[in-house]
């Protein structure tokens, strides 16, 4: 039992040494999100296996690959919504009391909004559930340009406005890790720029993010992880 554990630790140390750090990255900074030897099988189909990654503070990792390559699955796996068949995800230097999902924001395909609640009620609910501060709400709504219509029901909003309201959650509650699945979908050019600014601010503030995307995000100095190459 103990023997196995030691082997495991040794293996991990060896692998860590083998990791290539990006030039000009935040080498030696406090927080690193690592995924090691991750495998994901869904419906008897192996989506990916032996996947390693490391994202440091201030870094953005862009997940690329064709549909079905496992971009969304990887994000959901990090968010704790899908169990990895093998491997582990850890946030080194994060809060040891909390799990990785508890320190992460997940922006999925759905906006997680209730049409009968107002914009402010929707955002306020997520601030409360995600242990944020209500005081941050006004600023977050301004950041996504929804402050004028805070008292309208979310059901009245367009797809882009709903997406922005969903993004406001990331601004209102502070989390070091952002997991974004196609964050620019349904957003117009101005909103995409606004999102890029929010992501840049998040990275500059010592956060890190992983994003699955087909289009450009408007971020400088990102790294890429290509999925589905083996297939």
């Amino acid at each position: 039992m103990e023997f196995c554990y030691i082997i495991d630790v040794l293996n991990k140390t060896k692998r860590r040494a083998a990791f290539d750090r990006p030039a000009g990255g935040h080498v030696g900074t406090a927080m690193d999100l690592i995924g090691r030897d991750l495998a994901c099988v869904r419906g008897q189909r192996e989506i990916f296996a032996g996947l390693d990654f490391r994202v440091g503070q201030g870094e953005a990792l862009i997940l690329l690959g064709p549909n079905g390559a496992g971009k969304s699955s990887l994000l959901r796996l990090i968010a704790g919504l899908v169990r990895p068949t093998e491997g582990l995800v850890a946030l080194e230097g994060g809060d040891p009391e909390l799990t990785v999902p508890e320190q992460a924001h997940y922006l999925g395909h759905q906006d997680a909004l209730k049409p009968s609640l107002t914009v402010a009620e929707n955002l306020g609910f997520w601030i409360d559930v995600l242990d944020g501060e209500r005081a941050a709400m006004a600023e977050a709504l301004t950041a996504v340009a929804l402050d004028e219509i805070a008292d309208l029901p979310a059901g009245y909003l367009s797809a882009g406005q709903r997406r922005r309201l969903s993004i406001a959650r990331l601004v209102a509650v502070e989390r070091p890790v952002w997991l974004l699945d196609e964050p620019t979908s349904a957003l117009d050019a101005a909103s995409q720029e606004r999102l890029a600014a929010l992501m840049t601010a998040h990275l500059a503030g010592g956060g890190l993010l992983l994003a699955a995307t087909h289009g450009p995000l408007g971020l400088a100095g990102t790294r890429e992880l290509r999925l589905g190459g083996r297939a």
Binding site: A145, L146, E148, I149, L152, P153, Y156, L157, S158, G160, Q161, R164, D188, A190, S191
Partner: peptide
């Protein structure tokens, strides 16, 4: 009017 307000808000 409220629907209209949502449609004409910034960046609708």
């Amino acid at each position: 009017l409220r629907l209209l307000q949502a449609q004409t808000a910034r960046g609708a």
